[in-house]
Amino acid sequence: MKKFFDLSHAIREQPNCSFEVINKLPEIRYLEGGAQGSFFITTKINNLFFNISTHIDFPGHLPELRGKFSDSVGAYAIERFVGSVLVLDFSSKLQKIKSFFDDKGKFLVDLKDEEKMMLFLKALEKLEISTSEFNEVLKICSASLSSLKGILLYTGLSAYWKYEINDAWNFIYFFNPFLSSEVCEQIACYNFSFIGVDTSQIEHPIVNYNGDETPLVSNPKCREFVIEKLNAINGRLNHKILLEKDILIYENVNIPPEVANCVVDFSGVPLNFQIEGMNNNALARPYAVLVS
């Protein structure tokens, strides 16, 4: 029996689930589709960003890789986005920080409580997926890696997706389990076409703080801690390790628990934009087919 799963979050005329200060609301305009007699209707979308909702990061997403691979997303062969995929279950990782949030994912710590803020920042380290943890889950799945087009990481964060902007420190969706750089280097050797995550990004979530945000400016020790951490991460971004091997990254994939630790048939093809320079992001509607 085949069961289909839509792995995308819908694009709506509502704020994306993010903390960004850039207005990314799609603006819809309806127009006459042509003026040669019959009246047909079409739609035009202003202010449509390509890194909202479920989307793919291509190498051009990083400034240093802009000219190193294909000059447009449409230049990628369609088979790069279709094939067998293993969904690895790392949902237990989220338990390490759940006590800092309420049931709806709102941050519970008083931002001025430096001691608790520091405890939280240190707890974020436990979100890292180490080589041994990664290999252990691989072993449980016992899939043949050479037959896979890619992997998806299931963390359980899809359940928190909502159409609302929250501050970077204030919502659990932005505190994602993440692969260690060693695991990314291991993945880079597998000849995968892509990886996908049910989170907003694949880096250590401390990058969201950027060093100068509200919870940090009044907590000097926390600020110092974050700055040191960011300096250590700088240059070893997971994005860079993967994208410089042309391993594409699906972000904000809507992964249901039913497919955790399963091999599924996957398709997540972007639109065929062949415009030079459009090689950074692409919107996609991936889906999975689970055969039982």
Partner: peptide, 13 residues
């Protein structure tokens, strides 16, 4: 407010 651009009238970075 969350998502608001920084400006002379808010406390954002």
């Amino acid at each position: 407010k969350a998502g608001q651009r920084p400006s002379f009238s808010n406390a954002r970075e």
